[in-house]
């Protein structure tokens, strides 16, 4: 690691003032940041530890939802009674990620900000536009097994690697952000992460000095919740493809179909057209195929990751079949 000054603010205000600039990085659980600092992918001059600023409660909201503090650990979220009962897709997504040791440290806010696992990003002796703007992309003409097939750009084909945020996207959760001078804003999880475009270094919409304070889950909805993660080993592996689904039926037809996908893009992928297509229809294999066609119509593989396109199609079908109890 590069030498850094370690600062531990005693309040959120203090934290804003310390982190308002280019040279400081916030650290909470540290499971991703320290990994990258050891590789010198991240080289902050100042590390602002926000790990003891509270924000570690899960509270009921007025409209029947939940507010999960930014410093609530993944373990606490996954094991919270109401989350297990009312938002099982979120509990399942978290439990499908990493290991108990990592989930015990990883926080809600930190996990949202988790950076890509692209091998060229984590190797500072390789080109990477995300890490070093203008240096090129090693993955596009290299090994792109982990990489994205949706929303990529000629600059970057990296994926967002997490699971938690994929479930939060399906649940249409909202990120609560606080900036300096008491400015607050709320950003839907679906809009929190960015696509690489011409600014691949930008993972999400946070501005310098802004701190995630919570994630708000809307009131629970009826329906079956599923998190399906396809990976190369049975545990402790990042997703090749994952699907988070909240699906409700009314009689024979689909009444709700909130879907989000991991492993496919620079962000948890949510395509509102899928719900439009599925809702009101009787589920069958042909419908699931059409949903996959829609999801993947602009998908582009990069050689090694071409398989993600058919795999996403099949995994979506499996999830829809399970959720709607349809035989295909």
């Amino acid at each position: 690691m590069r030498p850094f000054d370690l600062q531990r603010p005693d309040s959120l205000d203090h934290a804003h003032s310390l982190s308002d600039g280019e040279t400081a990085t916030l650290i909470a659980g540290g499971t991703n940041l320290l990994d990258l600092m050891k590789l010198q992918v991240e080289t902050p001059e100042r590390l602002v530890a926000i790990d003891r600023l509270g924000m570690n409660a899960i509270e009921d909201t007025e409209d029947g939802g939940l507010r999960i503090g930014a410093l609530v650990t993944n373990t606490a979220t996954a094991n919270h009674d109401r989350i297990r009962a009312d938002y099982p897709v979120l509990a399942r997504a978290i439990l499908a990620g990493a290991t108990q040791q990592l989930r015990n440290r990883a926080t809600t806010g930190g996990n949202l900000c988790q950076r890509t696992r692209c091998y060229y990003f984590t190797n500072i002796d390789q080109p990477c536009n995300k890490r070093e703007p203008g240096s090129g992309c090693g993955a596009i003409d290299g090994i792109a097994r982990l990489h994205g097939v949706l929303g990529t750009s000629p600059q970057c084909i990296a994926t967002y690697p997490g699971d938690m945020a994929v479930a939060m996207s399906a649940l249409d959760a909202v990120v609560e952000i606080e900036g300096a001078a008491d400015t607050r804003r709320q950003v839907p999880v679906r809009d929190f992460h960015c696509l690489p475009g011409d600014t691949p270094w930008r993972d999400n919409v946070l501005e310098p000095g802004e701190i995630i304070t919570a994630v708000i889950l809307p009131a629970p909805v009826e329906g079956k919740q599923i998190y399906r993660k396809v990976r190369e080993r049975s545990s402790y592996a990042f997703a090749l493809v994952s699907v988070a689904a909240v699906i409700a039926m009314e009689g024979d037809t689909i009444a709700r179909a909130d879907l989000a996908f991991g492993g496919l893009a620079h962000k948890p992928w949510h395509d509102p057209r899928l719900a439009e297509l599925l809702v009101g229809k009787v589920p069958d294999a042909a419908l699931f195929d059409r949903a996959a066609d829609l999801l993947l119509e602009d998908a582009q593989g990069y050689g090694e990751n071409d398989f993600k396109i058919p795999l996403a199609r099949r995994t979506l079908a499996a999830v829809l079949a399970e959720a709607t109890e349809t035989t295909i």
Partner: peptide, 24 residues
């Protein structure tokens, strides 16, 4: 997995080189 352009081993850690875990 080796990079086709410089031959370097790209998945050079235990996160991306998948030795079996207990559950396997």
């Amino acid at each position: 997995h080796f990079d086709p352009n410089d031959g370097h081993l790209v998945n050079c850690d235990l996160a991306e080189y998948h030795v079996p875990v207990n559950r396997d």
